[in-house]
Amino acid sequence: MNDTYLEYQAEILRMTDRDPKRCMICGKCTASCPAFSEMDFHPHQIVGMVERCEFDVLETVEGLWHCMSCMACSERCPRDVQPARFMDAVRQWRIRKQGGEHLHPQQVPEKIDEATPQQAIAAAFRKYRK
């Protein structure tokens, strides 16, 4: 196994504080996900890829940016694996890498309108940037 990937895995597991081996691949997370159709990979797959150290794929997953952090997957998971934490941890791992940031402040004006609440902008910065 690639040592760097093992380090990545350790970092993710530190962040999630959950054991992906507890996942029995029932698919309830993916069944609950409101962003399913926008995602290339789905919650149960993200958990599985962390477990199998597939960081070459995780490096390119686009679905991360579509996750709404609604936590329905974590709430309904029968084994308390908490896929939402894995989504968030992989997202963190991506944006912490050089050039990994997904949102630049210059882009914000074009993404908002008169009524957009500050809450949305603050949340997007947290989710998409270091």
Binding site: I25, G27, K28, C29, A31, S32, C33, H42, H44, A72
Partner: peptide
């Protein structure tokens, strides 16, 4: 269908069942 159901929404006399089909990669 290999997968689970995440949500059931009663609407207009129907039950809208949202599930996962893990083998087909569908919801």
């Amino acid at each position: 269908i290999t997968g689970q159901v995440g949500k059931i929404v009663p609407e207009n006399g129907k039950l809208l069942v949202q599930g996962s089909d893990l083998l087909a990669g569908m919801q």
